[in-house]
Write a protein that binds this DNA or RNA. Structure first.
Lengths: 146, 146
DNA sequence: CCGTTATTGCAAATCATTTGCATTTGTATA
DNA sequence: TATACAAATGCAAATGATTTGCAATAACGG
């Protein structure tokens, strides 16, 4: 029983945020909405190569989306940034396979910890975001090691 | 009652891990051990400029420490990596001020969540690390905004 | 259809980090 | 104390993903 994903209405979303409906941006949002996991720029480029956009254009589109709040950039590692739709999606966290970089979402949230954090913090008064992630080995890689 | 920090025995630590006791590496570890918060490379370079090491040398030293497990690299942001001693230190998490980048440690841990994560995960069987961080506004910046 | 503005392609710039290589330094051993 | 080897360093050059400038193009409201 694999989770069924439905493409969002990319055009409506672009319009809502005042972006123009270009082939690349529509496809970027659709690809993101159809993915079960956050995707790196490289993979997004591959999956949208049908529209043949310049790398610079892809970066600009993603940055615009992130700034607008449509897309969330997840920094897994110094050189590894993953993108996922932030609109119409439940806030989730992630677990990353250290061997093959598989990323899976985790339906837990640590929102409830925020108040405790504020209480013990010496310097902070307000928290508006948090992130939690795990590193591990996925089943496939565990098998491969043996 | 400000927390009192004591410098570690950097030379003993270097020896323990089979590193040579050079001026830079000794000083790097001492600076890290005397800091209440994780530090970026730029700041480490400034604080060790007495020994006048080349940037490449500093990067190499830090990378060697991270690989050896003496130092932990904390990826706050795509372009922001902070270093802290991982030896003889309790495992902690962090909160970062989005305005001035102040970083504070949080004495909470989400170790206990790992088992739950494994249970609900479709692809993962083993977790060996986790990270949790918060973003907020520190008191100083909150005041400045007004 | 027109005018405005966002978006794009292309090439060049950026900039932190890494790497190659010759030289120096630390340290174990004789 | 001298010798020898690997580790650490400095310097310069390379790297490589991301960004930027600028002119051309495309989307969209009027």
């Amino acid at each position: 029983m694999k989770k069924q994903l439905q493409p969002i209405d990319a055009e409506a979303l672009l319009e809502e945020y005042g972006f123009k409906k270009t082939a690349l941006r529509i496809m970027l949002l659709e690809v993101l909405s159809l993915s079960t996991m956050p995707l790196p720029v490289a993979k997004l480029a591959r999956k949208t190569k049908k529209v043949g956009a310049d790398p610079a254009t892809i970066y600009r589109a993603l940055n615009a989306f992130v700034e607008a709040g449509i897309v969330t950039a997840l920094t897994v590692d110094k050189t590894k940034v993953l993108y996922e739709l932030s609109v119409s999606k439940t806030h989730v966290h992630h677990i990353v396979c250290d061997s093959c970089n598989t990323v899976e979402s985790i339906p837990f949230c640590i929102k409830s910890i925020e108040q405790q954090v504020i209480k013990v913090s010496r310097q902070f008064k307000k928290i508006y975001d948090h992130q939690m992630s795990f590193k591990g080995t996925c089943r496939k890689c565990l098998r491969a090691v043996r």
